[in-house]
Design a protein around this nucleic acid. Structure first.
Length: 482
RNA sequence: GCCCCCAUCGUCUAGCCUGGUCUAGGACACAGGCUUUUCAAGCCUGCGACACGGGUUCAAAUCCCGUUGGGGGCACCA
């Protein structure tokens, strides 16, 4: 019996909750669920200069909003804590000593200025950029002495100078790195905090992580991690690097070119299930055997999920397709649910009452691509148009007088109606149309503009019913004045 | 510059592992049409790809090599 599957998401709380984080989280969670395993959330907060306490909270909130749940983490506990790296400093220190004792790492006293100069020099010469090994030659006793004398230093990984390091990546297969090209990475910083490289290897081992599923940008640091695992004598977890989500210009998704914050998508009125579905579509994955194989729930997706299905090409984040999916979900939602979402996410006017809501929501529901569009699409239900554009009101080839007369006739007819229903309104409008010799489009458009100020609305007679008799007649009267 | 990854319609992808069933399938987008009181939605049609060059083979989108193109990494950031 193999070890139970344990995977982890390791975001660093340094900014907005990124859609790429959600993308990676989804794949981790899917793999854990698929195998009856455990999904761990670990906070990588070893960079105290970029750390933002608010960021952690927002990451949790955004992931939860998307329906992503973890089994262990700083906020839910677990047997392998603490789950914030800043709370594990003693553990890293201890492991640093092990590496030093095995000569797998060494202390480095080089100043930032020297490193800077060195790098510039390497660039200029067109040489490989990386630490030149200056302190690697130093006898350990001497290094210890300097260290105890209080000289600031870092600890670096002593990467073998020759040979190759290979490993197997799940979507990509065998990958081979030349050791000579691998830098002597800093493992422990002057401030006593570990770098990502040390912390992630130590934690993944201690937390019994079996599969590392993370973004492709980590691919080139894998050899460093392998050397670390070997130095410790630990087994190496399976690795799966997910291709980076791209901007339309194919560079990695960045907020300079694209909205990347999950919060932004939420504020724009995207539904979490649409975002999840969309993200799952990137890189492969369709649920087979459905009439709509590209529209599926999280559960359905997980059901058919497999790491072997993941592709290695970097998909462009196509917001047009997300919008389409969002529309699909908006139309599918029971209107009570949609109403609740609109209210909860603050996309509907506060004065919206239950009854009115029920009347208008079905009229706009299939026209919405984002929750945020509700306000604009439905504004005329809440207030008469502030002004009416005569050019829109008057059909092409007609004049203002005949338009005014047409509205007058409609008003007369509608005032006398005993039943206020879409069918009746329509029938009497058609009669007026015939009397005037107008076309259907002309009369209905004139009514539409008179009542809503717009040329694109739900079927106008339905709108009139939702608005009610008094309001409808009042608006037509007003329109005549302009 | 050095290291690594990737390569099917504009975009997301199926097919590739286990060559022939691929005149390469679906979806988004786009264009046209139908429906129609407008806008949506829906339905139909169209446009549209195996980056290029060499191999291997009776046969290559599928296997191998190279080229080109794109991407990522090269921090006391993750």
């Amino acid at each position: 019996m193999a070890d139970p599957v344990r995977v982890r998401l390791a975001p660093s709380p340094t900014g907005d909750p990124h859609v790429g984080t959600a993308y990676v989280a989804l794949h981790n969670m899917a793999w854990a669920k698929k195998n009856g395993g455990v999904f761990v959330l670990r906070i990588e907060d070893t960079d105290r200069t970029r750390y933002s306490p608010d960021s952690e909270r927002r990451i949790f909130e955004s992931l939860r909003w998307l329906g992503i749940r973890w089994d262990e983490g700083p906020d839910v506990g677990g047997d392998f804590g603490p789950y914030r790296q800043s709370e594990r400093l003693a553990i890293y220190k201890e492991h640093c000593e092990i590496l030093l004792a095995k000569s797998a790492a060494y202390l480095c006293f080089c100043t930032a200025e020297r490193l800077d100069w060195m790098r510039k020099d390497q660039m200029r010469r067109g040489a490989q950029v990386g630490y030149d090994g200056h302190c690697r030659m130093m006898p350990p006793e001497e290094a210890r002495k300097k260290q105890s004398a209080g000289e600031p230093c870092v600890m670096r990984l002593a990467v073998p100078r020759e040979g190759e390091t290979e490993y197997h990546d799940i979507p990509r297969g065998r990958i081979v790195f030349k050791n000579a090209a691998v830098d002597d990475q800093v493992l422990l910083k002057t401030d006593g905090f570990p770098t990502y490289h040390l912390a992630n290897v130590v934690d993944d081992h201690l937390m019994k992580i079996t599969h590392i599923i993370r973004a492709e940008e980590w691919l080139s640091s894998v050899p460093k991690h392998i050397h670390l695992y070997r130095a410790f004598g630990w087994p190496i977890p399976k690795m799966c690097h997910l291709s980076l989500l791209r901007s339309p210009d194919r560079s990695k998704l960045s907020k300079r070119k694209n909205p990347t914050s999950i919060e932004w998508y939420r504020q724009q009125g995207f539904l979490p299930e649409a975002i999840v579905n969309f993200l799952a579509l990137m890189g492969s994955a369709m649920v087979a055997g459905k009439e709509e194989p590209e529209v599926f729930s999280l559960e359905e997706w997980i059901q058919g999920f497999d790491l072997s299905k993941i592709g290695a090409t970097g998909p462009i984040f196509d917001i047009k397709k997300l919008e389409w999916l969002n529309g699909v979900y908006m139309r599918k939602l029971p209107s009570e649910t949609l109403a609740k979402r609109l209210v909860d996410e603050k996309f509907s006017p506060p004065e919206l009452t239950g009854e009115k809501f029920q009347k208008i929501l079905p009229l706009v529901q299939e026209r919405l691509k984002r929750l945020s569009e509700f306000k604009e699409l439905a504004d005329f239900f809440f207030a008469a148009p502030a002004s009416i554009e005569p050019a829109l009101l008057i059909p092409k080839g007609r004049d203002s007088t005949s338009t005014r007369q047409a509205l007058e006739k409609i008003l007369d007819r509608w005032k006398g109606l005993t039943e206020w229903s879409a069918g009746v309104l329509e029938a009497s409008a058609v009669e007026v149309m015939q009397q005037l010799g107008w076309k259907k489009g002309e009369i209905f458009m004139a009514i539409r503009v008179a009542i809503t100020g717009k040329t694109a609305t739900p079927p106008i007679c339905d709108v009139c019913v939702a608005l009610g008799r008094d309001e409808t007649l009042r608006r037509i009267e007003n329109a005549q004045k302009c």
